[in-house]
């Protein structure tokens, strides 16, 4: 590989990371309460060293307990969704693959909707994520078992089974929503949850997603070589030493955990898992050793930036985050499809 291509990719990665850090800082700065930019580093430092100044206490609680968990949850969830999208598109050699196509997202949503409907979600911050997690995992389990024979899952069957399960899951979610419309509070919370958002996220949510995100992303990065090989087809991959069936099983399990964790804490945020990897693939090429870390950073950047946009343009309205990601993601993706009509592929 020529050095210039490699360094160009490296520069892009560095630029993306810098933008992510910038948008995270902007996320701390922005909000209805006016906290001067000069005070932020001091407050953060003070809070982590346990030497907070009394005069800053209200600023500290807004920064540390409201804004910081919000941007952290957004960044981690965005990372999880985008890297899972990149992995799924690669492992199935299918440009349509994304966390939603195997039914994992809709299964997690259904679990969450059930917990909201039963009123359990208000008991503890951990109940809804738990339900979402079980829903996503159960769906993947069913899909995989329908599609697999003797440890080998046919890709076409897997994707079709995923789509069918997704349809079933959302039908049940809609049914529950229709049943709960009588009590306005429950119905409203379900609607808002399914549209996705980062409002009112706490350190509980950060604690929940952090281990999944860190361990999961670390594990997925190990598969870049195998994913490159899988892009060329099963025969190629196995002839250079990749155990295709086992690799697919492991990747399915890891991505299900990541997607379940992400969806369970920030709701139905669509399009990040589908679009972010495609955009990065057009810029960086198909190599997973660049694509996977770039997707993790790009997903975080996209979600934090979308949240930022939402809070700065219309702070008084509570517009769900999923609406922003889909509203900007879909047209941009369509533009890419039109421009690169025949070259958008995994």
């Amino acid at each position: 590989m020529s050095a210039s291509v490699g360094s160009r990719r490296f520069i892009i990665l560095v630029l993306m990371t810098a933008s992510l850090l910038g948008s995270l800082f902007a996320g701390l700065l922005l909000g209805p309460a006016d906290i001067p930019i000069t005070k932020i580093p001091g407050i953060l430092l003070g809070s982590f060293t346990g030497q907070a100044l009394l005069e800053n206490s209200w600023m500290e609680s807004i920064l540390i307990d409201v804004r910081l968990p919000r941007i952290l949850v957004g960044a981690l969830a965005g990372s999880c969704l985008a890297i899972c999208g990149a992995v799924m598109q690669g492992m199935f050699r299918n440009p349509l693959a994304s966390p939603s196509i195997l039914g994992v997202s809709s299964g997690a949503s259904l679990g969450a909707v059930i917990s909201l409907y039963l009123g359990l979600a208000s008991v503890s911050a951990w109940i809804l994520p738990l339900f979402a997690f079980v829903g996503g995992g159960l769906t993947l389990f069913i899909v995989y078992h329908i599609a697999s024979q003797r440890g080998h899952a046919a890709v076409g069957t897997l994707l079709l089974a995923g789509i069918a399960m997704a349809a079933l899951n959302s039908a049940i979610s809609s049914l529950i929503l229709a049943l709960s419309l009588d009590s306005w509070g429950v119905g409203k919370s379900i609607v808002y949850w399914t549209m996705g958002g980062l409002d009112g996220r706490t350190w509980d949510h950060v604690l929940l997603i952090t281990p999944f995100a860190l361990i999961g992303i670390f594990l997925l990065l190990q598969y870049s070589r195998s994913l490159d090989a899988l892009l060329l087809g099963e025969t190629h991959a196995s002839s250079i030493g990749v155990d295709v069936a086992r690799t697919r099983r492991q990747l399915l399990l890891i991505t299900a955990c990541l997607v379940g964790a992400a969806i369970s804490i920030c709701g139905g945020i669509s399009f990040i898992g589908l679009v972010v990897p495609h955009i990065l693939r057009l810029i960086l090429g198909p190599h997973h050793r660049y694509l996977l870390p770039a997707s993790a950073v790009g997903g975080a950047l996209t979600l934090v930036a979308a949240d930022l946009l939402l809070r700065s343009v219309m702070p008084e309205k509570t517009i769900p985050l999923g609406v922003v990601t889909a509203a900007f993601g879909a047209p941009f993706f369509l533009y890419l499809l039109v421009r690169q009509r025949w070259t958008v592929r995994v």
């Binding site: 490159d228 060329l232 090429g285 198909p286």
Partner: peptide
């Protein structure tokens, strides 16, 4: 293999380097 279609923008050297996969850690 008989089917040697390559649909992806790997360059020649990267394709050949894949032959080292069994010897390299993750």
């Amino acid at each position: 293999p008989q089917d040697h279609s390559i649909d992806y923008a790997f360059n020649v050297e990267e394709m050949v380097a894949m032959g080292r996969t069994p010897y390299l850690g993750n």
